[in-house]
Design a binder for these strands. Structure first.
Length: 913
RNA sequence: GCCGACUUAGCUCAGCGGUAGAGCAUCCGCUUCACACGCGGGAGGUCACAAGUUCAAAUCUUGUAGUCGGCACCA
């Protein structure tokens, strides 16, 4: 068989995905077992304008590992993909394109034409990320792919809106909202991020009290808003201002006279104790305004320039220019008291980073009190969803729910779900599923639909059930029945609020079911500088580049090796580890293929009897241990533990020891086959060798299955090359499918096949070999020199060593193994001790006595340090009395071991001196 | 201001009550017929600091310092 010397990821990544997809392996329908349990995940729908970033790569890897294993275990498995319509992002792209290509604004071409272009944009560019997911190897069911603006999902949105409105959970109101002047839309609290800024200023302005020569000083960080002031508030208990309450001030730069009101909200300790009140531009002032019946004067336009209400001098000025001008004018008037440096946290738009302007405007809101209780009650009653890691995510989730305020759901955008509300001439509102329905309710067709659309998250909140066909009219589908609740949601910390919590609430509300049982919150992949990856920092690492450089599989298993929920700094060196691992797997398999002479995979070869070699018993034991461990780890979402178990099983146990131990059994077979031409009996020689070959190929096959969820391409490529791999190895649920490792039965591991005795014996053999290697290296014995190994041990252990004579000689590069109950070697020997044996290498003429003494003293030192520590423990009466008996006994046993070894080492040292 | 996480070998990170681990880097030796993306052998850590609980603490508690988050406030 021809097989390349090194693994070439590109080669393996070429063809398998298409075949998997075309064969329908990703769909739940591939499972023919009517009794199969289901396993389902819905993907956090990526932004349709997006392209794959490291966070996606991480989350997708984990989801794929989960579904691939479950699929192999015979579950009816569905991982549902899709994208969200990303209202603001798409709108921005289309606006830009329109300006560049046609030099027009959206309003010039009108809503319908704009939407046409938006759909065209989506068709053309919207599949970037889904194509990239194919590259990742994500085993999602593309036949069920959904988009939040699909007809059915849009019906679901309208239905939910209408129902919530009917129940009074959605209302329309004039409130202070977060206005993004760049995107010219309102955004929700959850989309605002506070940015701490040290360069802020606190400006002290003096307002003249009417009919008095007193000046009332107020402090503000946004002086331009004074143009919209309608009062000054002081605390009623504040002695300084008590007499001013009820009087008025002449608001500078305007012709207005505004009242001085008393309000408990004002903190006398802060600033001057007098607060300018701008009800249309500040949430707290808005509240004060309501309490005192104050006018609400909006002085800004939707792009954060001042409007006519701000006065002729300011009309049209940008907010920051207006700010400077206000300060200048106050200075001219002698009414500027001072400006202090002030650290401020500015609300910014999470998406575009512009400073949010709190603005009074008419919007649609979703009441969150009862919604929130649905989620909180579920958590209290069932501790659901179960977060992984639980700390700190569960706490963050519940704390947020407890402090939740109403959700602003309308957006001043065209791309998205237009709000199903119509107004008649009188301004009466009719919320309905359709224009016709609204017209019936209104008794007229002269209706205008609300121009706003809904927050993208409003539709994402329905994702867990709208994707399965729920649209309000249809509330029971096969998929809903089969796949909801989903088993687990894998996502990032940043959308626990925006998405996870809202999905819990809406799914409970509309289906009565939970959206998912478990929530795995991944950490953040940080740049090399330890900061979150971002375009502005230019510290991003493109997963596609990593795929090119190291291969998809290496990238995937590296991402899976990160502890669940932990942040990690990106480091190419680490991914290299797994690229090397991929190459190791490739080469180990290559070795077996080159030497196995067509031996076929046969699971029966791993069923051993008493006469089997220690190496075979041991590796089968380790295989079962590993499979059990991997399954347990993945059941707990400890992907990194599973990776570590597989890595060490494959590299350390299988490659470094097992292959080396059985190498001669396998390769010798070829030599003897040549010898056979001399007329020697072939049958007797070949039988055991064939078994060894079958066994090693079968172990690799088992390992490939376990590795497949992490490294789908490499494992499929190799699995296809292994002789004897067929759909016989599939989980019974897939008995009729084409052969693929994807549908092979995932090794479960069998506790009964863990052989502790084989483990101990193997360890003893490994210890002897290691000690000899150590002596060789330290004494700088040439690889070509083959000394005699003397081993002193009990009769029982001697048997073990005798049984493993060939591997010991081979791996320790020695000629002869002498076993005895005591060492009987010349003075010029190098010695070492293991837990069950003494090892010596006669080194006539080679030994450097000084070096040997130093080496022995080094070993002795280590043992004595340990001895001293254990002695101290045993000398502690409390320890002996109170620690578990087996602990104490363990330490006593260890001390006895050390004693033996120390004695031997001392004798050796004596002999040398 | 409130809540939380993190601080372990040069680097990046596991471990989270009973003998300190991995990968990379480093040092020594290997063109050993699967793999130099390799093989063999070393060196390297008072587990941030302090106090406490415990027979026993990197691991639990409290405090301190530093780093980073989340929430609230922000005139």
């Amino acid at each position: 068989m021809e097989i390349a010397k090194a693994y070439n990821p590109q080669e393996a990544e070429k063809s398998h995905y298409r075949r998997w997809e075309e064969q329908g392996f990703f769909t739940p329908e591939i499972n023919k077992n009517p009794a199969a349990e289901k396993y389902s995940i819905v993907i956090p729908p990526p932004n349709v304008t997006g392209s794959l970033h490291m966070g996606h790569a991480l989350q997708h890897t984990l989801m794929d590992v989960l579904v691939r294993r479950k699929r192999m275990q015979g579950f009816r498995t569905l991982w549902l993909p899709g994208t969200d319509h990303a209202a603001i992002s798409v709108q921005r792209k289309v606006v830009e394109q329109l300006r560049e290509e046609e030099g027009k604004s959206p309003h010039e071409i009108g809503r319908a034409a704009f939407l046409e272009r938006a759909w065209a944009w989506k068709e053309k560019y919207g599949s970037t990320i889904t194509e990239q997911m194919r590259r990742e190897g994500a085993s999602v069911d593309w036949t069920r792919s959904r988009f939040t603006m699909d007809e059915s999902l849009s019906r679901a949105v309208r239905e939910v809106f209408c129902r919530l409105y009917a129940e009074g959970w959605i209302y329309r109101g004039r409130r202070i909202v977060n206005w993004c002047p760049h995107d010219k839309t309102v955004i929700s609290d959850a989309e605002v991020k506070d940015e701490k800024r040290k360069d802020g200023q606190l400006v002290y302005l003096k307002y003249p009290v009417k009919g008095d020569d007193r000046l009332l000083t107020v402090a503000t960080t946004r002086p331009e808003t004074m143009l919209g002031d309608t009062a000054v508030a002081v605390n009623p208990a504040d002695e300084r201002y008590r007499d001013l309450i009820g009087q008025t001030v002449a608001l500078p730069l305007t012709n207005r006279e505004i009242p001085i009101v008393a309000d408990e909200y004002v903190d006398s300790e802060f600033g001057t104790g007098a607060v300018k009140v701008t009800p249309a531009h500040d949430p707290n002032d808005y509240e004060i305004g309501l309490r005192h019946n104050l006018a609400q004067i909006v002085v800004m336009n939707d792009d954060a320039t001042m409007n006519a209400n701000a006065g002729a001098d300011f009309d049209g000025l940008d907010r920051y220019k207006a700010r400077a001008l206000v300060i200048e004018r106050f200075e001219e008037l002698g009414l500027l008291e001072k400006i202090e440096d002030y650290e401020i946290s500015l609300p910014t738009c999470e998406r575009c980073k512009n400073v949010i302007e709190p603005l009074l405007s008419e919007q649609w809101f979703c009441r969150m009190d009862e919604m929130r209780d649905l989620a909180l009650d579920l958590m209290r009653a069932e501790k659901s969803p179960q977060f992984y890691p639980e700390v700190p995510n569960e706490k963050v989730y519940t704390a947020w729910l407890e402090n939740l305020r109403d959700w602003t759901i309308s957006r001043q955008l065209w791309w998205g779900h237009q709000i199903p509300a119509w107004y008649d001439r009188a301004g009466n509102v009719f919320v309905a599923h359709s224009f016709e329905e609204a017209a019936r309710a209104a008794g007229t067709t002269e209706l205008k639909q609300d121009p706003d659309t809904l927050d993208t998250w409003f539709s994402s909140a329905l994702w867990a059930f709208s994707t399965f066909g729920w649209d309000g009219r249809t509330t029971a589908t096969d998929d809903l029945d089969a796949f909801l609740p989903t088993d687990v949601l894998v996502t990032g910390r940043d959308i626990i609020f925006l998405w996870v919590s809202r999905m819990v609430m809406t799914t409970l509300k509309f289906t009565g079911k939970k959206p998912f049982d478990d929530v795995v919150i991944t950490g953040t992949v940080l740049g090399k500088d330890g900061k979150p990856m971002s375009k502005s920092r230019k510290n991003g690492v493109d997963p596609l580049e990593m795929f090119d450089k190291f291969g998809v599989d290496a990238t995937r298993i590296y991402l899976a090796s990160i502890a669940t929920g932990a942040d990690i700094r990106w480091n190419d060196l680490l991914i290299e580890t797994y690229r090397n691992f991929a190459n190791k797997i490739w080469n180990a398999t290559r070795f077996c293929l080159l030497n196995s002479d067509g031996a076929r995979v046969d699971p029966a070869s791993l069923v051993l009897d008493e006469t089997a070699s220690i190496a075979d018993k041991w590796i089968v034991s380790r295989l079962n241990e590993t499979a059990l461990g991997v399954n347990e780890a993945l059941d707990r979402y400890e992907f990194h533990t599973a990776v570590s178990l597989l890595y060490h099983f494959f590299w350390d146990d299988f490659c470094d020891w097992y292959i080396e131990l059985v190498k001669d059994d396998i390769t010798f077979a070829r030599l003897s086959a040549e010898d056979d031409e001399d007329g020697l009996s072939t049958w007797e020689v070949l039988t055991p060798q064939t078994e060894a070959r079958t066994r090693i190929v079968t172990i690799i096959e088992q390992a490939l299955r376990m590795l497949h969820p992490f490294m789908p391409y490499l494992t499929e490529e190799l699995w296809q090359k292994l002789p004897g791999t067929s759909n016989d190895l599939h989980n019974p649920a897939y008995s009729s499918a084409e052969a693929t490792v994807m549908l092979a039965d995932f090794p479960a591991g069998d506790r009964a096949r863990i052989d502790a005795r084989a483990g101990a014996e193997m360890q003893a053999v490994i210890d002897v070999i290691s000690k000899v290697r150590n002596i060789r290296a330290e004494m700088q014995i040439k690889p070509s020199d083959k000394p005699t190994i003397h081993v002193a041990a009990s009769a029982e252990w001697q048997q073990v060593f005798r049984a493993n004579e060939a591997p010991i000689l081979k791996l320790a590069r020695a000629d002869k193994l002498v076993l005895d109950t005591a060492l009987n070697v010349p003075k010029a020997s190098a010695k070492a001790v293991t837990t069950v044996a003494e090892v010596a290498l006669p080194l006539e003429g080679l030994i450097d006595f000084e070096k040997e003494i130093a080496r022995l003293e080094n070993q002795l030192g280590k043992l004595e340090t340990e001895h001293a520590r254990l002695d101290a423990q045993l000398a502690n009466a409390n320890f002996v009395e109170r620690a578990p008996v087996e602990k104490v006994q363990g330490i006593r046993d260890r001390v006895a071991e050390i004693d033996t070894q120390v004695r031997a080492l001392r004798q050796n040292l004596e002999a040398l001196k």
